[in-house]
Lab assay of single mutants.
Amino acid sequence: MPSETPQAEVGPTGCPHRSGPHSAKGSLEKGSPEDKEAKEPLWIRPDAPSRCTWQLGRPASESPHHHTAPAKSPKILPDILKKIGDTPMVRINKIGKKFGLKCELLAKCEFFNAGGSVKDRISLRMIEDAERDGTLKPGDTIIEPTSGNTGIGLALAAAVRGYRCIIVMPEKMSSEKVDVLRALGAEIVRTPTNARFDSPESHVGVAWRLKNEIPNSHILDQYRNASNPLAHYDTTADEILQQCDGKLDMLVASVGTGGTITGIARKLKEKCPGCRIIGVDPEGSILAEPEELNQTEQTTYEVEGIGYDFIPTVLDRTVVDKWFKSNDEEAFTFARMLIAQEGLLCGGSAGSTVAVAVKAAQELQEGQRCVVILPDSVRNYMTKFLSDRWMLQKGFLKEEDLTEKKPWWWHLRVQELGLSAPLTVLPTITCGHTIEILREKGFDQAPVVDEAGVILGMVTLGNMLSSLLAGKVQPSDQVGKVIYKQFKQIRLTDTLGRLSHILEMDHFALVV
């Protein structure tokens, strides 16, 4: 994948999101292997301009796509893939009243899908469409860049269908997702969380590099694949309309690839034109409109599966009536509230959605109805927002919020430890010299600072030695090549209790 991002070429006709291997024109390309080798690009942008032909009021008969309808489940399912879809609609009884809503608040519980998330729908649909058009064949390999849930859905379907599955996901995604993927037989590649989507090191860039190296491999490409919004247009939206008897006044959905909100909203605009569509985008993402909503100094966020630093091709923002931004604290607070007060075992993005819903639905009156999409299960986040310690460490809970008995030293300040200034190293000294210094002084790690004293990161003896043994660096290389740029900081005025929580999850903390 090139470091400079080429513009994806656009073909003359058809839909841009065809499933299957992508040609340089962004659509299915038939021909000899030699032709494909000559024409197939190194990668295709996940934010390529959409060429979708959908228009409100256009006859369904003019759609270029294969459409399906929700099917009634048999008493005995032939395999677990038949437990994807037909998820329950559940009334939220307490939270709406707590925040003064007059309307009825309903939750579409997508964590009841077989793999635990709304992404099971698009995973199965992308595979079925690729099999139907002859792209996927027995023994082929599926590769997908994902925040985890699409990966789980694909790995689940691949396990049943017999495909090899490789999932490329950023490091910030939970260990629970990784464990589930491994249990399903998927191979996992992790990428830096802070890598831009168009960087060769991003999950998108690495996935395309693997595709170019592995024979008979395919990126189904949830960011561009029409099967993504079509899955929701054909099934999720129809289920909502049936469950609500066609009567709903507002739908609120958090947005990642945009397939969920695009597919549902398009069908609702056709069948229930008075329904307002509300999009939820986390602070630090750029999906919301108008652009002024996205202006923030924050560039990272903890909530998973929603928000991006690019506009995915499948996201149709014209069908969203209003956007709201959400933050991590309210997302996790509301997710825990949904679990504790409503018994809905949902993930953090569901918290984002409901946090926005109780604001947006203030305009609705008694007798009206708001539906929220709860995308995934708490299963993926047992060591994250479900953990009091994690919430404390991230600053989303305060010590006084917890009532468990603490040891005698818990409320003492870090400054009472009488710490001395640490050994520091410059980023320009060599790895070999740094190892000598650390061994001589008896230290395992040291902060790396520039000549102005600005902290650049941390270097550890173990990481340097393993990097040297693996051949990633040489003793003569500058130590700046092996620094940890993500590390926890703590102030002298913070409590030892807070430091204790940090050290339970990290090997060190830097006192500043």
Rank of each mutant, 00 (worst) to 15 (best):
P70W: 11
T13P: 10
A195G: 03
L251P: 00
P21G: 05
A130M: 00
K30G: 11
L251N: 00
G162A: 01
A69C: 13
Q7Y: 13
E110N: 02
A48Q: 10
K30D: 13
N194G: 05
A231P: 08
K83W: 08
L156W: 01
K271A: 10
G258S: 02
E37V: 14
K269M: 08
K75F: 06
P192F: 05
I264E: 02
S50E: 07
G100I: 03
S63R: 03
S199I: 06
V255P: 04
P145S: 04
S174G: 01
S199D: 13
Q55W: 05
K30Y: 10
H65Q: 05
L105T: 06
E110L: 00
P49G: 03
A186I: 01
A114Y: 02
M173Y: 08
P49S: 11
S50N: 07
T146E: 04
D234L: 09
G115E: 08
A195R: 07
I240S: 00
L268Y: 07
E144N: 02
I76H: 08
I261P: 01
F111A: 02
N212T: 12
N194A: 11
I80A: 04
S19P: 15
R51K: 12
R58P: 10
S27E: 13
S217Y: 05
G57V: 11
I240N: 00
P192V: 07
A158V: 04
I166Q: 04
L230H: 04
Q7G: 08
L105F: 13
G96H: 08
P200N: 08
M250Y: 05
T141W: 12
D47T: 06
D133K: 11
R190W: 02
G274Y: 12
S254E: 03
A69E: 12
F99M: 13
T13D: 09
P12C: 04
G85N: 06
S27G: 13
I127L: 10
L42P: 09
P33M: 10
E104G: 12
P88V: 05
S123E: 08
L28M: 13
H66F: 12
P12R: 15
G100N: 10
R45L: 14
V168G: 04
C272H: 12
E187N: 10
H65L: 02
A48L: 04
C52G: 00
E201S: 15
R182V: 05
K271P: 05
H203D: 03
S50R: 05
D179N: 05
